[in-house]
Computed example of a mutant assay.
Amino acid sequence: MTSTRLDHVVLWVADPVAAAGFYAEAVGLEPLRVAEFAAGKVSFPSVRVNEETILDLAPHDFAGHMRMVPGSADSAGHPVNHVCLALPADAFDALRARLAEHGVPLSDIGHDSFGARGEAVRNFYFRDPDGNVFEARHYDT
């Protein structure tokens, strides 16, 4: 590894099992540790974005364990502004169709939105069932 990478983002969710189901079925991400969470063996499940990045799905009652810096426990229920997923064009189209099939409200398609790799060709936004906002985009044509 020669550069800094994004390892994970922790999202606060009301029901981690339901959230994992949403991300697996509607978004197409691989669920991780869901059975272990349901059995009480781990504190939260996750979903895999790619080989290097996951989203942790933390239940609100996990906030008491967030003591790494003062005030961390107070973050429960405060979603970030949004998380952006960059996809190839075909996966972008497939995600939009899958979300629509699941009845997820979608923003209009935007164009030329700036991001980590410059101007994206297309983008759109959606919310998960807990109100976390996601942007999907692609840079290639």
Rank of each mutant, 00 (worst) to 15 (best):
L95S: 00
R96Y: 07
L95W: 00
A116F: 11
N123Q: 09
G115Y: 12
R98H: 06
R122K: 14
L106N: 00
R98Y: 07
R96D: 00
A116R: 10
G110R: 08
D93H: 15
R117E: 15
D112R: 11
F114Y: 11
G115N: 12
H102L: 07
H111Q: 10
G115W: 12
S113E: 13
V104Q: 02
G115I: 14
F124N: 05
E101Q: 09
F114N: 09
S113L: 12
V104Y: 03
E119F: 12
G115H: 12
G118L: 13
A100F: 08
E119S: 13
F124I: 04
S107C: 00
G118F: 11
E119A: 14
G118K: 15
R98V: 03
A100K: 10
R98T: 00
I109H: 04
R98G: 00
L99V: 01
E119Y: 10
L95M: 15
A120N: 08
V121E: 14
L99D: 02
P105W: 03
A116S: 14
D112E: 13
I109Q: 02
D108G: 03
L99R: 04
A94V: 04
A120F: 07
V121P: 04
A116W: 11
D112S: 11
A116V: 15
A97D: 07
F114Q: 13
F114V: 15
G110C: 05
P105F: 00
S107R: 02
R96L: 01
H111D: 09
